[in-house]
């Protein structure tokens, strides 16, 4: 076991890990941050997406030791300081961008990474960026609508087909 230190949601944290400890395991089991979901555990579904130094990564496919010293943001870090839902989260609620909610933490983290890179994405941009995030419930239309709404664009004309 070795000690790793990183910043998670603005807080300095450390813990004992094995070489093979995944970032997702460290977050969920080491820090109790169970908002990061593990769906496939094979880097296919995107439920486990978090930000490492601002970039979206699949936390089930990176070792905790490999991101020692990095700044990690998880879904728990997306709420406003007063605890109310952040902009992207609120848009998912307003536009019914979730049903069971299992994929939602990863969807929100990917959407936030997209908006940081591209503040006014087109519908095609959103669909392309979310290719690595799989949702078994919604059929995606309302997720796309929520992301466009979170970018401040008018979505009254975007129908759930």
């Amino acid at each position: 076991m070795t000690k790793v230190t990183m910043t998670v949601n603005g807080r300095a944290v450390s813990g004992e890990v094995e070489g093979r400890t995944l970032l997702s395991t460290f977050l969920r089991e080491g820090l109790g941050l169970t908002g990061t979901h593990v769906g496939c555990d094979t880097s296919q579904c995107g439920a486990c997406v978090v930000h490492v130094d601002g970039k979206a990564v699949k936390s089930c496919t990176v070792f905790a030791s490999d991101v020692a010293g990095a700044a990690v943001t998880t879904i728990e870090g997306m709420a406003n300081p007063d605890g109310s839902l952040g902009r992207v989260q609120q848009a998912f609620q307003d536009h019914h961008g979730l049903q069971c909610g299992f994929c939602t933490p990863g969807m929100v983290m990917s959407a936030a990474a997209l908006l940081a890179e591209n503040p006014k994405p087109s519908e095609a941009d959103v669909r392309h960026y979310l290719e690595g995030n799989i949702c078994r419930c919604t059929g995606y239309h309302n997720i796309v609508k929520a992301v466009l709404a979170a970018s401040g664009q008018d979505v009254s004309g975007v129908a759930a087909e």
Binding site: S43, K58, G132
Partner: peptide, 9 residues
């Protein structure tokens, strides 16, 4: 290649 998270790593 792949998706954004794959491309970041």
């Amino acid at each position: 290649i792949g998706d954004p998270a794959v491309r970041n790593r």
